[in-house]
Every structure is written in C-alpha cells, then in structure tokens.
C-alpha cells in the first residue's frame, strides 16, 4: 500500500472523561452507575416488582416523582413498603442486596419513614452518592475513564459507593430507587 493511501480518513473520538473538564462527567457517570444499580436491584426484587405492578402504587410513585412530597407517598404506601423494606412475610427485601453484600440488605431491618429521609429525589440521591467520594477519588475514576473502564472496575466503583451508606441513607435511596424504577418502566403495562 502506498503511504499516501494510508489514513485517508480520520476519526475524532469524543472524550468526556479525564482531568478537570471530565470531573463533571466522572461525577455523572459514578452517580448514574450507582443509581442504575439500585434501580436494577429494585426491579430484580420480587416484592418490589409486585408493588410496581399495582396501578395504585404506580400512580402514587408517579405523583411523588412529579413533585408531590414523599410524606404523602409514604402515607399511601406505608404498609406495603414496610413489608418490603422490613422483610414483611420473610420473603421480601433481603433479595435486593443479598448477592453483593453492599446493596439494600441494610434496608431489610429498617422501616421506611419519609419524614426523615436524607434524600427525596433522584438528583438528591445522586448528590448523596457523590458526597461519598472525595474529589481525589472522583478525579482518579475520571482519569480512568479516559482509557476506558472494565466491567470489573465499574463494579468496584459501584460496590465502593454502596458500602458507604448509612441505614437511613439506604432506606431513603430505596424509596427513591423505587420511584425511579417506576419512571423507567412507565411504558410497561401492569401485569394482571
């Protein structure tokens, strides 16, 4: 091949991560990965899925997501959520975080009390996740992003974040994750 024919084309790869400019991207990615994981756990939990299949529950979650306060959501869902979060009949709640050890297993022994929830929206939940990381840690993760992360590295970030929550924070995140799960599955018709 003649030299002139080599690289007749060029590719510009858009870089989001790395360094200071990438700090926001790194934050966004870390927060989203952790929230995705939580929502995924909610959707995998049988009791949670049963809740999400209840049109009344979905309605209440939608209202909470659109600005209604969580007090009202708790009043409407209180008993059912307590069953899920508190283990209820013994079949719910613990499944969500059973595998990784850093998931929602802390919620299984706590009741949901929206009155003292440290976060009430997805954005607040993401901010809470980021509070658990120092700037140095976020920079380090953001730098890694420039070269691309393996699934294993992603898993480590997620587990690292989840392991830093208190019981109260896990309870709050559980409720927010449930609201987010409802939003993401909004197109799915309830199973009847």
């Amino acid at each position: 091949m003649r030299k002139g024919l080599i690289a007749a084309a060029a590719v510009i790869v858009l870089l989001g991560g790395g360094g200071y400019w990438g700090l926001q991207y790194g934050k966004k990615l870390i927060a989203e990965r952790v929230m995705d994981e939580m929502v995924g756990q909610v959707l995998q939990d049988e009791e949670m899925r049963r809740l999400l299949d209840d049109p009344e529950v979905r309605r209440a979650l939608r209202e909470a997501a659109s600005g209604e306060d969580l007090e009202r959501l708790r009043a409407e869902l209180g008993a059912q959520l307590e069953n899920v979060a508190g283990g209820g009949d013994g079949s719910g709640g613990s499944g969500a975080g059973a595998e990784g050890g850093a998931g929602f297993d802390g919620a299984s022994s706590a009741s949901l009390d929206a009155g003292d929830l440290p976060v009430t929206t997805v954005e607040e939940a993401k901010a809470l996740v980021l509070e658990k990381f120092s700037l140095g840690e976020i920079r380090r993760y953001a730098d890694l992003l420039r070269g691309g992360l393996t699934e294993e590295e992603m898993r480590l970030i997620r587990d690292d974040a989840l392991s830093r929550f208190s019981e109260d924070e896990r309870r709050a995140l559980l409720l927010v994750a449930l609201i987010e799960a409802e939003r993401r599955t909004g197109e799915r018709p309830p199973e009847r």
């Binding site: 024919l5 080599i6 690289a7 007749a8 084309a9 060029a10 590719v11 510009i12 790869v13 858009l14 870089l15 989001g16 991560g17 790395g18 400019w21 992003l145 420039r146 070269g147 691309g148 992360l149």
Partner: peptide, 26 residues
C-alpha cells in the same frame, strides 16, 4: 456508555476498510 473505545468502534465501523488517523476531541 462504554467510553472512548466505543467511540473508536463507532468511527472505525463507519469506515469499514483502510486506515484512520484517530484523535481525541480535546
């Protein structure tokens, strides 16, 4: 969501043949 390697994949897939000079956007 798979980072710059996914971007490289997308760009090279578009080309299909030959060589490409690859640059980062920064």
């Amino acid at each position: 969501g798979c980072g710059p390697l996914a971007g490289l994949h997308a760009g090279l897939s578009e080309l299909q043949t030959g060589w490409a000079l690859v640059m980062g956007s920064d």
